[in-house]
Amino acid sequence: MITATITYVIDPTKVEAFEVYARAWIHLVNAMGGTHHGYFLPHEGANNKAWAMFSFPSLAAYEAYRIEMAADAGSQKAYKHATDTGCILSYDRTFTRPVLDGASVQELGL
């Protein structure tokens, strides 16, 4: 599994517009075979940072999603919304692999 973590710098006066964008992408990623883990919007602290995380079963599945997304009318509409509203100032995408299973302290071997 591969997880994309996106860190956004958003316009703090346009959080509502960014939330519209976020909700669209949750739907789009899930419809294209991914698992969206949600967007995390400012609440306390920095008012211009937001995060999103979504996973695909493999890098090949993510790459297939990128090809599908580039040709998808809904994706283009979501990008247009972000551009038209100016809600996203910049973003950075990092790929990680999740650790989802817990282990007991005894398994530490100390």
Rank of each mutant, 00 (worst) to 15 (best):
H43Y: 13
A17M: 07
Y62V: 01
P12C: 11
E44L: 10
K80A: 15
G45Q: 13
G86H: 11
F56V: 06
A82N: 03
D11Y: 07
G33T: 08
D72W: 04
S75Y: 06
R93N: 11
N48G: 10
M1E: 02
G109R: 09
E44M: 10
T3G: 04
W51Y: 15
D11L: 10
G34Y: 01
M53I: 08
C87E: 00
A22I: 02
D101A: 14
I67G: 05
F56P: 02
A73C: 04
H81M: 07
E63T: 03
I88V: 15
W51N: 08
M69Y: 11
D72N: 15
L100G: 05
M32F: 09
N47S: 15
M69D: 11
L89E: 15
Y62N: 06
G45F: 10
M1R: 05
T5V: 14
S55A: 14
S58C: 05
N47R: 15
D92V: 06
G34H: 03
E68L: 13
F40D: 05
S104Y: 01
L89V: 13
G102N: 06
S90I: 01
E44F: 07
K49N: 12
A22M: 04
A31C: 04
A17W: 00
D92N: 11
N48A: 12
V29T: 13
H81R: 06
H36E: 05
Y8H: 14
A103S: 05
Y65G: 09
S104L: 09
A52W: 01
M53K: 06
Y21K: 10
F40R: 07
D84T: 05
F56S: 08
T35A: 14
A46V: 05
Y65W: 11
I67T: 14
R93Q: 10
G102Y: 02
V20M: 10
H36Y: 02
V99T: 07
F54G: 04
T5W: 04
L89R: 11
E107C: 05
A82M: 05
T83E: 09
G33Q: 10
L59N: 07
A50L: 10
L108W: 07
I88Y: 02
G86K: 12
V9R: 15
S90T: 10
G38E: 05
T3P: 01
Y65H: 14
Y79D: 10
A78M: 07
A60E: 15
R23C: 02
F54V: 03
I26H: 01
H81A: 06
A50E: 01
E16Q: 13
G45M: 14
A64T: 13
W51I: 09
A60L: 04
F18Y: 06
K77F: 02
H37T: 00
A82T: 01
